[in-house]
């Protein structure tokens, strides 16, 4: 064990030794975005006037306005029965966002729980029931229609002339 890792373990022990068993509050960072739709995180910045620049100038052209990093999904879990179990059993490996962006039915959540148990997550039977109900209730399946099978791929069009001098 490296000195750095040893220090981290010692600090962790110290923190635990002093830890009260009070319920902890989740502390979301940055702006929570309600809704979770993809469109909301790809709001375009104002477009500069187009049409004036030649295509070849593109890579040297527009300065991109600095937009702060955005959280695509809520960082906090809904506050109902099951939240504490998620915090206890799930958040050591991944953040809440990996859960809050999901939409799954009961069977799919069951599959996820089975996978996590195989990897070492070990809730009590009561915790497991509560956890599954919480996940299905809060992050259940979409009501949108199931995507159709894709249409057959179109035939390849002929290759055009490459307008740049650079090789492929």
């Amino acid at each position: 064990m490296s000195p750095r890792r040893l220090a981290a373990v010692l600090i962790a022990c110290a923190a635990l030794a002093g830890a009260g068993f009070a319920a902890f509050a989740s502390a979301p960072r940055g702006g929570n975005r309600a809704g979770g739709a993809l469109a909301a995180v790809e709001q375009p910045p104002p477009e500069p006037p187009a049409g004036g620049a030649a295509p070849g100038a593109a890579s040297a052209g527009h300065a991109t306005p600095a937009v702060p990093a955005k959280n695509a999904y809520p960082t906090a879990l809904p506050d109902s029965a099951g939240r504490a179990i998620v915090e206890r059993w799930c958040l050591m490996c991944h953040s809440a966002m990996l859960i809050t962006q999901q939409a799954k039915d009961s069977t799919a959540w069951e599959k996820t729980l089975g996978q996590m148990e195989k990897w070492g997550v070990a809730p009590t039977p009561e915790e497991r029931d509560t956890l599954r109900a919480y996940l299905v209730q809060c992050f259940g399946p979409r009501v949108a229609p199931v995507p159709k099978a894709p249409p057959p791929r179109p035939a390849a069009p002929p290759a055009p002339r490459d307008t740049s001098a650079a090789p492929h």
Partner: peptide, 13 residues
Amino acid sequence: SAALAALPAWARQ
């Protein structure tokens, strides 16, 4: 994970 759950609010925050 019980260790994480045992952390007080100030530590989690």
